[in-house]
Design a protein around this nucleic acid. Sequence first.
RNA 1: GCGGAGGUAGCCAAGUGGUCAACGGCGGUGGGCUCAAGAUCCACUCUCACAGGAGUUCGCGGGUUCGAAUCCCUCCCUCCGCACCA
Length: 968
Amino acid sequence: MTVSELDEIRAIERKWQDRWFSDKIFEPQSTGSKKYFLTTPYPYTSGPQHIGHTRTYNVADIHARFMRMNGYNVLWPMAWHITGTPILAISSCIERCEGATIALYENYVRLYEEDESRVEEIVNSFVNPWNIANYFAAKIIPDFQKMGFSIDWSRQFTTGDPIYNQFIRWQYEKLMELGLIVSGQHPILYCTIDKNAVGEDDIAGGDVDKISIDEYIGIKFSFEDGYIVTATLRPETVFAVTNLWVAPSETYVKAYVDGEKWIISPESASKLRYQQHDVNIIEEFRGSALLGGHCVSPVGSKIPILPASFVDVNYGTGIVMSVPAHAPYDWAALNDLRQQRGINADNDLIRLTNDIEAIKPISLIKIEGYSDFPAVELCERFDVRSQRDNETLSRITNLLYKEEFYNGTLKPIAQQFEGRLVRDVKEDIVEFLKARNAASTIYETSAKGLCRCGGSVVVAIEPDQYFLNYGDPKWKAKAFELLDQLKIVPDAYRAQFVQTFHWLDKRPCVRRRGLGTTFPFSKDHWIIEPLSDSVIYMALYTIIKHLRECDPEQLTPAFFDFIFLGKGDLTHVSQQTGLPQEMLRAARHEFTYWYPNDHRHTAVAHISNHLSFFLFHHAIIFPKACWPKIVTLNELLIREGVKMSKSRGNVIPIATVPEVYSADLVRLCLVSIADLNSTVDWRENEVEMVKKRLLRFWHAANSDIVSGQPQYDKELSFPSRWILAATNAMVSRASEAAHQFSYRKYVTEAFFEQLNRVEEYRSMVLDSGERRHVLLDLLNVWLRVLAPVIPHIAEELWERVHKDGYISLAAFPQYDNLYAETLVQKRFLDGVIGDVSNIQAAIKRETASVFIYLAAAWKYKLCEVVYGLDGRSLKQIMARAKEDPELRTHLKDIARIAPGLVKLLAQEPAADIVLGFEAESETLLATKEYLSRRFGKDVSIFVENSDIYDPANRARRALPAKPAIYVE
RNA sequence: GCGGAGGUAGCCAAGUGGUCAACGGCGGUGGGCUCAAGAUCCACUCUCACAGGAGUUCGCGGGUUCGAAUCCCUCCCUCCGCACCA
């Protein structure tokens, strides 16, 4: 068992992959009564596939193969997703000659290209995003083939194809007709230089430090002829404001904002312009000019304006409202002012003394376990010295905000909002303030970000965004109806679907740029975004072959209505589209044959988006008969305990699988390491273990084939009958596991445990014609059970045992109860072996002989009697024994052994414990030599009676199912 | 905070009312093989017994039951999702 055997397996894998592909054995026709239409996500073609993606496809392939062998006409097609901005972002990185991206893509391309000069050339070509999409789409095909996936390659398309665009336009026509597309304004991340929306991929480091949009409330404090505007995440605290904070040395502006005079920072002014506000600056001044002034809060309080160093003019409006009772920063800043007073006799401070002196924290929110002034309390507890203790302050700020938000209730000072939970009342207070023209929504990025082009990332309001209205009641109701009849495996994920379905609401479905389909309902240039154009494409697989010859212009909404919904009249549609009637008829037939999508398998990460959209769209666009039936899910894959990621450099691309591992090895590992609902941790030492087992199987199977004897006329011995029965039982358990998608259990049963059993059988029956025959016979069944998991090896061995045709297309073995009683016999034997081992281990002496004493016949009779009794007290047993003429002669012994017997029979199911004398005796006699070898001692088998060698007087302890043992 | 999943021997991990001291693997110990190492094979790997026995275990603490890792309750801890990101 060496490298050369693994090399041989690798060569075999290539051989069968080529044959499957050239014989097109996985390209089903739309005929046959049992069909199974399986889909998995089409890969996003921004780079090579790795072993993490492969987990999903691997499960799908194993199931596809299992179903195929169970007589289903299985369709598992594949296409390519290129829609969206990531590919665009990569292109522009390469165009700008960004070293890291170029190096990454050169490494990707090197996986497939030997010629180094080609590598550079190809990467250079990636300045055109289509080249990225096409290059990787083309390379993922051989990647998948290297894994042995039984994909139908004849139905490929990309989401950028004109045919696809027409299909998606039809989908959106339907949604528009149903009134499910709405428009409105929407905040987005936006680059100030590109003048365009930015996604995660466009932001420098955006994949690591994600930037989100925070919704602040701008609160207007009346001041002179206008307002000082502060920005806050906690509008409810407006009732407890004691003062405002400004940065005295920074510049502020007075500006007309939508016709009102606002005092804010200039940075804020320019950001507001992106948020659909009309902003004109009137004058600039230093923050210190505001100090000592007083403004009036929306709830009528007179509020002084004071200086604080923690104020950042880049954040919000650059002016902060101070709530010292509930905001640690504010309390700390207030303390700083008080302590500086008198020490550094700054003019400003002296001027402000009275104001500072007068400030008392105002208690607004009541929370369990805190005083009236939790911010004060926390500052003291965490020993905050000044407003510059940034780390501590932000930590306790988060802590307190969370606590107050979820568990805090408002005090009487909150007037009509008294007594309500902060989390419930927040929105109402915003409404209240807005109604008095005292508040305005201001969006801010959660962190500073730079676009890859160098521009700042800000929040802009898109005034005319289109949304899919998942919140529409009729849509939601349909979706729930679909969900109710959908099988989900593992079913534990159902709750996540339910939750997602509940909170799904309006969702933007178009973007200003990216690859994809143009949105048909706007004069502006909009592209339907990736998660919105990838939800019903499974339908396209069914008919794509018929569309290749068409002019995409012919694929009108009427065409798709006819094919998918059966709407319209054949002749009419034919005339309208110019498409031949037979083509329309064939496509319609193919769609109705394959749809619905019986089974979709994907990763759990898709539940809250793709899968839910998939179900929503199917529910509303297609009739019930076309609704998907089963969704199965798997968790993700990590490597040596950590996530795989580009930045860690620990990704295993599929392209390297054939040289580093082997397809069948990876396939076996991926399902054996973990169940669907837990993470696979790809650890080399586990892989190594699986590799050894696989090679051992390969080695043994080959030698069984070489030495195999097709014919054997004599009666089979107990061990042979047992291994055949055990194999039968294995087929049954494996089949059941597969139907439940428990493929870990499947390989445990069908590979690992079966391998152990077969090895045990080998040691039970030394080389003989019988064994050679049985092993060959067994292989015929076993290989077919293994074929879904390790198809290459199974296919090769199948050929070597001279079976006709592909094992991939062979019938999954049937199973029956032949020799089932031997399974109980084997359990009995294992019990005896266990007992002998126990005793040997206990006495720690060299021994030469083992004596096994089967119980006397009357004990078996007693056993039946006891088994039939309702109660099993000694008294009852003795009473019954007295009635029996034979047992009556053994009363003394019965009294002695009855407790042990009762205990034995307490094991469930009792009927399987006691085989009867004949069977026990046959089992031991048939395996006597094996036992002798196994113990390394002479083994003698006796039946309990007076004429036997029994120096320690052990035989009398013998019970049915539990012979007595003596070693010497 | 809400919703979901989960906490099992040194580690990973199966097991959801009785055949469970608890599958399997890794690691560890001893032994066979070998000049030796690796590979491989066998045994052991909670505690105590040392003739097949007993005791204590499955996050903590309670409860239901003849019987609980498994069912119920309180608590502690970990992970995932909470949207416009594919």
